[in-house]
């Protein structure tokens, strides 16, 4: 089982080989509320760690989703286009956003592991 890493912006990334699957955390979906629209990047797009990657919109507002690592988008979850509520139902699984081919695996070292992210969220109150 590959390790999941987290950003302070509440994205998760799970790396297998040199490809990471990326989504937003369950905490993030809870804060957003009902997701009604997800805008995904084009396959082939180059993304930069911390840069814009996707947009997720709840009934209330639009939020940016940032790339947890730099690399190339190699797949997007097209199911979210027709069923954006999947992000609420299964943020850590079926609600994934994109797969990124990592440019530099060392970037993962800057991200939080499961325990650190849990503490990070708990400290947010």
């Amino acid at each position: 089982m590959s390790e999941t890493k987290y950003t302070q912006e509440h994205e998760w990334i799970r790396v297998e080989g040199d490809v990471g699957t990326v989504g937003i955390t369950d905490y993030a979906q809870g804060q957003l509320g009902d997701v009604v629209y997800v805008e995904l990047p084009a396959v082939g797009k180059a993304v930069k760690q911390g840069g814009d990657m996707a947009v997720v919109e709840s009934v209330k507002a639009a939020s940016e989703v940032y790339a947890p690592v730099s690399g190339e988008v190699v797949a997007v979850n097209d199911e979210l286009t027709g069923a954006p509520e999947t992000v609420n139902a299964d943020a850590n699984g079926k609600g994934w956003f994109v797969k990124i081919k990592l440019g530099d695996k060392a970037q993962l070292d800057a991200l939080m592991d499961d325990a650190a992210y849990k503490k990070f969220v708990a400290d947010l109150g």
Partner: peptide, 12 residues
């Protein structure tokens, strides 16, 4: 209150 546990969509 902006929403209750049911959420905006369900409340609407």
């Amino acid at each position: 209150p902006v929403q209750y546990p049911q959420g905006i969509l369900g409340e609407h």
